[in-house]
Design a protein around this nucleic acid. Structure first.
Lengths: 210, 210
DNA sequence: GAGAAACGATACGATACGGTATCGTAGTGG
DNA sequence: CCACTACGATACCGTATCGTATCGTTTCTC
């Protein structure tokens, strides 16, 4: 993932955390990232070329290569920047409301048009690009953990069979799948109503099972 | 989509349908298509290059361009060839069994490893490639019609509210989504058990609604 | 204000790829 | 057996792209 990029977003050694880095670096870094993101979103991975970024951002090619060692590093950074952050849910919720909060959080994350356009690129690049593969795995495990805690809640309340915890991924397929499909194919609007429908559907099925 | 490709798979004018075409054409056509498919599956759209196809298939470049006017036509043909064929369900089924048959048919189609690897490519290419976009739309409308007939069955039996027919796409998101997710992310095995689970979940939720 | 660091502009090399053209060869169908 | 057609090999052109190198200029930091 290009340590140069990391170095550009952190402070140089020997500076306090209040101390900001060279604003020139921040500027060019941000400009490049923005242009690269736009290109990736609009035209897919092939459209994200160095020359394209140079033309669109107004940043010189030499500067781009000062921040990213290679084009692949830039691509990975763009995806990493756009990927939704998985944040834990507030504690103290009962299972049903937690599940609804989870699906709502999900549709909100997948609703970001930039991210929606980036998902196919992520699915493709992760197969050949180890950095992108790592981003994908990170995202997956974070979501997995989040779902596991919510499902554990359901088990504790007796609403779910204990065995769901043995196959969290399967439950995720049932819950995330519809949202992913809606995001990829525009088969349903990504609003809270849809989120609630997905959650309710899962709950209805689990009630019947128990 | 390259009329040349079409011409290569059909018989020259003036021949009866029993009459086969020049076997040399069939051979080279098949070899190219097979090599191109492998390249697309293994390395994504970028890996499907003419030179790569030439190297892998043993067919000369001039021959490739005799059958396909351009690289994009070849790509479209590869996707078209691999895309699952949507065939109507047997008539006379009741709603529940029809729905289960539908989801089973679905997991069978999405289970094809070649097609699974091709879905991200399809999702990306349809945005810039009109031929691929057409394949995607064709597939979508075929599936839509299939689901519509099954859902109509549910309405006739009183198992579904009449309003589902106003938003077949939403129902498809709920039913196809989990399967798509499982195919893309390997979150669940694509077997009949999973298909039945998806169908049952949808049924449980709809029973509760009515 | 001076030194240092980042930047812009540009030229350049290497490579990969799409697509065309040519020509001799081999297989097919009548 | 013969004309015809498809094929293989190869050379070639134009272009896009990655990545490097150089050098004068701007801008920040101290």
């Amino acid at each position: 993932m290009g340590f140069r990029s990391k170095a550009a977003t952190e402070r140089p050694a020997g500076l306090g955390s209040g101390q900001l880095m060279d604003p020139r670096i921040a500027r060019s870094h941000a400009s490049v990232l923005q242009a690269a993101t736009a290109l990736l979103v609009e035209g897919g991975p092939d459209a994200l070329t160095i020359d394209g970024v140079v033309a669109r951002s107004g940043v010189a090619k030499s500067t781009v290569y000062r921040h990213w060692a290679t084009r692949d590093d830039l691509v990975a950074d763009v995806i990493r920047e756009c990927a939704p952050r998985v944040e834990p849910l507030p504690g103290g919720l009962d299972f049903e409301t937690a599940l609804h909060a989870l699906t709502r959080h999900l549709v909100a994350a997948m609703g970001d048009p930039q991210w929606r356009r980036m998902i196919p690129a992520l699915l493709l690049l992760r197969l050949q690009h180890s950095d992108v593969a790592q981003i994908d795995e990170q995202l997956k495990t974070d979501q997995h953990d989040l779902f596991a805690t919510v499902l554990r809640l359901g088990v504790q309340e007796g609403a779910l069979d204990r065995t769901v915890l043995d196959d969290v991924d399967r439950a995720m397929a049932l819950l995330v799948g519809p949202v992913l499909m809606a995001a990829l194919v525009d088969s349903a609007p990504l609003d809270d109503e849809f989120a609630d429908e997905v959650a309710s559907q899962y709950l209805a099925a689990s009630r019947q099972r128990v």
